[in-house]
């Protein structure tokens, strides 16, 4: 179980990025974190990854406090961040260099197979498309068998078609070892396609505004029943999360609910 207990983060310049965030995620659950820009989603993920430290409160994984990068927690960044001096296989195996070569090769090939890049193992990152690079990056995180996988808007730079195929790859990887997944996204449809639970955040300072539990059958497609209704529920929640923050004049303006995200 991943626990966030009254987490707060204030940056050195006084910016309050997060305040009083409490969240429990059970093992194997897929949680999407959505919210407008500047509501601390990425900050939250960096705290969970141990890349930054919380100003207040604690993060713990199965009772083990997380203050720096934790062996049980993997992260996929917004950009692929592949190392250009390693080939695809070298990048995927980056985090398991300590394993014996034979086992390492086997795990790398298996992960590449699951993301559909088994035939690209010997190529250089620069030769791959953006979507392929992000698949390598996801495989790199999965290959260490993390108990928790953090994804920071990993598909935001990709076109819709590539994105939906990557959702498939991600889901297949998840099915294998069923890690806990925290996915930060600004795409409501992405949250609905993947998550068991959607956490809606609100800005200034970032905190949790609402939660929506999704009980749709998997695999989910945009055409499957309930998909659109779920999307609407989250959008309404998002709308509410921003509304109290806006002053009267702005609220008076008839903005379409979808314009800001």
């Amino acid at each position: 179980m991943l626990r966030l207990d009254r987490i707060g983060k204030t940056y050195a310049d006084g910016t309050a990025a997060l305040d009083d965030v409490t969240l429990e995620v059970r093992a194997g659950e897929i949680v999407a974190i959505v919210g407008g820009s500047g509501c601390g989603k990425t900050t939250l993920l960096r705290l969970l990854a141990g890349l930054d430290r919380a100003s207040r409160g604690t993060v713990s994984l199965d009772g083990d406090p997380v203050r720096e990068p934790h062996p049980g927690i993997g992260i996929v960044f917004q950009e692929p961040r592949l190392l250009p001096w390693y080939d695809v296989a070298g990048n995927v195996g980056f985090g398991i260099a300590h394993l014996p070569p034979a086992l390492r090769r086997e795990k790398v090939l298996h992960a590449l197979d699951l993301v559909g890049l088994a035939d690209q193992a010997k190529r250089w990152p620069r030769e791959l498309s953006g979507g392929q690079q992000q698949r390598v990056s996801i495989a790199r995180a999965f290959v260490t068998d993390p108990r928790v996988l953090l994804l920071d808007e990993p598909f935001s730079a990709l076109d819709a078609l590539t994105r939906s195929s990557l959702h498939g790859h991600l889901y297949r990887l998840w099915q294998e070892s069923r890690p806990t997944v925290l996915l930060v996204t600004h795409e409501v449809s992405e949250a609905v396609a993947l998550a068991d639970r959607v956490v809606v955040m609100r800005p200034k300072p970032g905190r949790i505004d609402d939660e929506v539990t999704l009980e749709l059958a998997r695999p989910r497609r945009a055409a499957s029943p309930g998909f659109e209704a779920a999307q609407r529920r989250i959008m309404t929640a998002l709308d509410r999360s921003l509304a109290p923050r806006e002053n009267e004049a702005e609220r008076g303006r008839a903005e379409p609910a979808t314009a800001w995200w």
């Binding site: 990854a49 890349l51 720096e68 990068p69 062996p71 993997g74 992260i75 960044f77 950009e79 961040r81 190392l83 980056f94 985090g95 260099a97 260490t144």
Partner: peptide, 15 residues
């Protein structure tokens, strides 16, 4: 950002 990848994978200073 690449150095941070090393941190995320808990590389030692030497590594």
């Amino acid at each position: 950002k690449l150095v941070e990848v090393g941190r995320a994978f808990r590389l030692s200073a030497l590594a």
